[in-house]
Simulated assay, not measured.
Amino acid sequence: MADMLAAPGDLASLLERDDLDEYKATMLIECATAVVQAAADGQRIVEVVDDVAEVTAGTGQWLSLPQFPVRSVASVNYDGTVMASGPAGYRLRGSRLFRRCGWSDSPLDMIPVTVVYTHGYPEGAQELQLGRSAVLGLIRDVYDNPAGLKAESIDDWSATYSALSTQMDGTPALRKALHWQYGRRR
C-alpha cells in the first residue's frame, strides 16, 4: 500500500457523506499524498520503520541520510562490516551520521554504506497536519468529479468546480509551503 496522509474516513467527514467508495477514496488519497511528497523534495513524510538506505560515503566525517526526520538508526553496515554506535563507531546527529575518523581514507574511495533506520513523522503527529490538509484540499472536489469538469449543467441545475482540485496540482503557494515544511532547506 502507498503512503497516505489522510484516511478515507477523513474524506467522508469533509464531504459529510457516509457512502464513499473506500477503494476510490483510498486511491485518491494515495495519489494526492504523492503530489504532496513530490512538493516536499520526495520526502516520504509519514513514518517508515526499518527502511533500508544505500548511500555512498566519501572522505568527510558526515554522511547524510536520504529521508528525514530520522527517528532512530537500527544498523549501519560499512563496506560489509556492521558498525557500532558510539565514539568508536558512528553517531546520529539530526539526519546525518557522524564518524570521527571520517568515512574513507582516500578521496577516490566510494565506500558503500547500508543503513537501516526509522524516519518520518508518526501517525497523529502535529507536523503531519499541513500535509493532511493539503491532501484533503486537493481531492475534495475530485471524488464527485472524476472527469475533471470545470462546470456542469442539466436543465436549471448547474455546478462549478474548483480548478485547483480538478488538476490535483496545488497552487504555487501550497507547493512552497509544503517544501518549506517538509523539504530539504540546505
Rank of each mutant, 00 (worst) to 15 (best):
G148Q: 12
S133C: 03
R132F: 03
A84N: 05
H179L: 12
G124F: 13
R91K: 12
G42Y: 11
R184V: 10
D18W: 08
T118G: 00
G80R: 06
T33S: 15
V36Y: 10
G148N: 08
Y182P: 05
P112G: 14
I139M: 04
R185Y: 02
E123A: 15
S153P: 07
A7Y: 06
V48R: 15
S162K: 10
K150F: 06
S158P: 06
A125K: 02
W103M: 01
S104H: 03
L108H: 07
T59Q: 15
R96Y: 01
M83D: 05
G124V: 14
D105A: 14
L20D: 09
R93M: 08
L136M: 09
W180E: 13
D79W: 05
V55E: 12
L174C: 07
T171H: 11
G89W: 08
L65R: 06
W103I: 03
Q126A: 14
R100C: 01
L5C: 09
P172W: 09
L97R: 00
L164V: 11
M83Q: 11
E54N: 15
V49F: 08
T171G: 05
Y117Q: 01
L5D: 10
L97M: 06
S85E: 15
L128V: 02
G124Q: 06
G183V: 09
L20E: 12
T59I: 09
C101E: 14
Q126K: 07
V52D: 11
S85W: 11
D18Q: 14
V82L: 13
V116N: 08
D18P: 00
C101Q: 15
V135M: 12
M27A: 13
A88Y: 12
G170I: 07
A159N: 04
P172F: 07
A25R: 05
D50E: 13
R100A: 15
R185C: 10
L92C: 06
A177V: 00
A151Y: 15
A159I: 13
L14H: 09
N145W: 05
C101I: 04
P112N: 14
P122L: 07
P172S: 12
Y182L: 07
L15G: 05
D21Y: 05
S72L: 04
L20T: 02
L130C: 08
L108R: 04
V116W: 10
Q167M: 11
A34H: 01
L63N: 07
Y121M: 01
D10R: 00
P69K: 07
Q129H: 05
E47V: 11
Y143M: 01
